[in-house]
Nucleic acid binder design. Structure first.
Length: 788
DNA sequence: GTTCTAGAAC
DNA sequence: GTTCTAGAAC
């Protein structure tokens, strides 16, 4: 990093500004900074603080470190001692580093106030490392100043992380730096070490990756004297000297949005009024990162010429309905023009409805520059796409593809080839995309709405009955895709945990470890090596060319042949799936098509016209069976349409029947029924799996997360989804499988699989509240069928 | 889906 | 030295 960027550092200041000194004098002397570190034990706060102090000392800059772990004569002290030490240091003209966990807003608010009182810049540096890293480090250290080490450390870290609250600008910070790995931390240390008295760092939120915003140049230095040009160039900067005036409307909007109290539609009107008075109009709107936010354009009302009045009704209905059903999400309808008629119509209609208006509002701005120009942090944006999912064509589609670069085209290609009206597809935006880097957008959801323009494909010729239905389907599809993405955001999971009911009504796993292992062992001896034999059988047929399956008419006998045929079919049908399957992934398909060949194998539990029930060859729990659909052409959930709803219900009923049977044999079990978002094996299959996860075949992170993250879609939800929207909402994000290892009951984090397994063998916490709804869990105590 | 294994982490 | 993960191959 070049600390001289924007001007070389000046000589260290020796003058000390009195607390009451006016701003100009203070700026001459160099602005003091209060840096509040935020992070759990093991996140490296002390290392950070020591490195910055060393850098500052070497450069002769007056900094003080206030460390709660050592403030009591080398031992841990109190918050009050820290506050006093910080106040004293500030009086002496020093900048201050607050080295304590500060994970909750309340814990850090007094330090923020202290900084504001002496008109120092107040910064947060959030050391937001993966829980497992913090736990590993804190468990293994031996001479920690605050004695958070050894076996207790994991518990302490987990408890703290459960309640962590990411810092927000509205707390009074002028700058927040997120560090999610050691590289980020090093950069932040370098930055603060090199911070000269005549420099100040840019205001805003920097380095936040997982929740949307934004890596906007963590290394950027800005000359303090030039605040006016800062505002001109970026439109989002708010320095402390401006807070009295420029931040007025920012604060107004932030408070309203975050408190969820006042109507944000009104807030926008107030903001509009301020704009009319010539005030700064491009302030940061909300730094609330606890809400996953979707920005979406009005669908079909531009080039597709859909009636605005009717469209606005659909938007308001769909959006208000959605935010009422989902926590921790926010929807923002965006249009470029201040005079947008669709925005006014939606605002008017929304004002007449009763809902939490901080979670659905309208916004004037460019959907590709919401963060950098509008200060609105959106994790996900929707794109009014064309049916070929190609760039160009003008409007929002061209703008988004332009802004996102080639990365979006490639990522889109991997997810889908075409789109039908009323459908959407969520595309994870690679981190190489400028839209990801600069605006913090992690996903683009392409959606195709109904068309009323005779010059465009699939014109509905003013059939608004159909048109409104398709438009509603389109919005529902976008919102549900968004909900799936939101579910994978870490903050959401913490919230679910914190709202967990104390009494679950679900029986805990059997206390007797010996008994459990005994059952496992007996099952292992009975295990039939069915699947490899199927593979052998199929390969044998392929070699001999005697396979009766129609796709082997292909002269090459390639196992990819059916995929090619199906890809063609998918394209013809406008479907969005085009997955190819390796030869090893065909076993279930083979069983489903020819179960009679294997009827003597003890792995097959039941065969009907619609399904086959099969013991999983590598069970990931004491009891784990698959209910495999026998419908040819249904490879996975992505292929499921409304017409398959009766089939889904049959699979579910069969799953329930077997779960009940297993519960009769072992009343300590709890079952969950569901599908993998993206299965590894071809042929739609429902997992019926006991929640003990006590199995030697559960070996890695992917196994664990495929059954305990949002990657696992509950059968009841899938049936509802298909019933309401005509298809299942799938989040294809592979990141779900790479997430850190968390207990499926108490959500505590663990550094590796063996440690996780030893924890889940003992954890008696109730299941998270979201699993207790809709009979997603089946146990003797619930005694329910799950049929609706 | 699993197995194998190099190399990272401890 | 041992444990554990993650990527390649099947």
């Amino acid at each position: 990093m070049d600390p001289g960027e924007g001007g070389s550092p000046a000589a260290p200041s020796t003058s000390v500004a009195a607390p009451g000194a006016d701003a100009d004098t203070r700026e001459d002397a160099g602005k003091q900074v209060v840096v509040i570190l935020v992070g759990p034990p093991g996140s490296g706060k002390s290392t950070f603080a020591e490195a910055v102090m060393a850098g500052a000392a070497a450069a002769g800059r007056p900094w003080a470190r206030v460390c709660q772990d050592t403030i009591g004569k080398g031992k841990a002290g109190t918050k009050i001692q820290c506050l006093k030490a910080a106040a004293d240091a500030l009086k002496e003209g020093k900048s201050v580093l607050i080295d304590r966990c500060n994970l909750e807003r309340e814990q850090r608010s007094d330090f923020v106030k202290l900084g504001c009182t002496v008109q120092a810049d107040v910064h947060a540096v959030f050391l937001d490392l993966p829980a497992k890293v913090c736990i590993s480090r804190s468990v293994s250290r031996t001479s920690h100043e605050g004695n958070v080490q050894g076996g207790m450390a994991a518990m302490v870290v987990n408890r703290m992380l459960k309640n962590k609250q990411a810092p927000l600008l509205t707390e009074g910070f002028s700058r927040i730096t997120f560090c999610t790995d050691d590289d980020d931390i090093k950069k932040a240390v370098d930055m603060y070490s090199a911070l000269g008295p005549s420099h100040s760092l840019a205001s805003g939120v920097f380095g936040q990756k997982s929740k949307g915003p934004v890596q906007t140049g963590i290394m950027k230095f800005l000359k303090k004297a030039d605040t006016s040009s800062v505002n001109k160039s970026s439109g989002t900067m708010v320095t402390s000297s401006e807070r009295k005036t420029g931040q007025q409307n920012t604060t107004l909007k932030q408070e309203n949005l975050e408190a969820g109290g006042a109507c944000s539609m009104q807030v926008e009107k107030k903001l509009d009024n301020l704009k009319e008075k010539g005030e700064q109009s491009k302030e940061r709107v909300s730094s609330d990162t606890s809400l996953c936010t979707l920005a979406f354009p009005s669908i079909s009302t531009a080039d597709f010429q859909f009636d605005l009045e009717k469209a606005s009704e659909v938007i308001v209905d769909a959006a208000t309905d959605f935010v009422q059903k989902h926590d921790n999400v926010r929807l923002v309808l965006v249009d470029l023009s201040q005079k947008s008629r669709i925005l006014s119509l939606v605002k008017d209609k929304a004002a007449k409805k009763s809902f939490d208006s901080s979670r659905f509002f309208t916004f004037v701005g460019d959907i590709t520059q919401l963060h950098s120009k509008g200060g609105l942090q959106c994790n996900v944006i929707a794109n009014a796409a064309n049916w070929r999912l190609k760039p160009g064509g003008g409007g929002v589609n061209a703008a988004i593809f332009n802004a996102a670069g080639e990365a979006l085209q490639h990522a889109t290609k991997e997810c889908a080839d075409t789109l039908r009206p009323g459908n959407s597809v969520a595309v994870p935006l690679p981190s190489t995309s400028p839209l990801h880097q600069q605006e913090g957008v992690t996903h683009v959801i392409h959606v195709l709405g109904p068309n009323m323009n005779p010059m465009r494909p699939d014109c509905l010729k003013n059939d608004y009955t159909k048109g409104c239905n398709v438009l509603r389907e389109a919005y529902n599809s976008v919102f549900e895709n968004f909900a799936s993405i939101a579910r994978s955001y870490p903050g959401k999971q913490n919230d679910e945990t914190s709202s967990r009911k104390s009494a679950s009504g679900v029986i805990s796993p059997n206390d007797s470890k010996t008994k459990r292992e005994g059952i496992d062992d007996s099952e292992r001896t009975k295990k039939c090596k069915l699947l490899p034999s199927i593979l052998t059988s199929q390969q044998h047929h392929e070699r001999k060319g005697t396979n009766t399956l129609s796709y082997h008419d292909n002269s090459m006998g390639s196992s990819d042949a059916p995929n090619q045929a199906r890809e063609e079919d998918n394209k013809k049908n406008g479907g969005v799936t085009n997955k190819t399957w390796g030869s090893w992934a065909q076993s279930l398909y083979e069983v489903a098509m020819h179960p009679e060949k294997y009827k003597n194998a003890d792995s097959i539990l039941e065969i009907s016209d619609e399904f086959v029930v099969l013991k999983d060859l590598y069970p990931k729990a004491k009891r784990h069976v698959l209910v495999i659909s026998r419908t040819d052409g249904l490879d996975s959930l992505a292929d499921v349409k409304k017409v398959h709803l009766p089939l889904l219900r049959s699979l579910h009923s069969a799953g329930l029947k077997w779960a009940h049977k297993f519960l009769e044999e072992d009343a300590s079990l709890t079952f969950r029924l569901g599908y993998h978002s993206v299965p590894s094996m071809r042929q739609l299959h429902l997992h019926v799996i006991s929640q003990d996860f006590n199995s030697p075949s559960l070996k890695n992170k992917k196994h664990w997360n495929s059954f305990t993250s949002a990657f696992f879609l509950d059968s009841v939800d899938v049936m509802d989804d298909v019933d309401q929207h005509g298809s299942a909402t799938i989040n294809p994000d592979e990141k779900l499988l790479a997430m850190e290892l968390r207990c499926h009951r108490c959500r505590s984090a663990h550094p590796n699989i063996p440690k996780l397994k030893s924890h889940i063998g003992a954890c008696k916490s109730p299941f998270p509240s979201h699993l207790l709804k809709k009979d997603k869990l089946l146990s003797v105590s619930t005694g329910r069928t799950g049929c609706s």
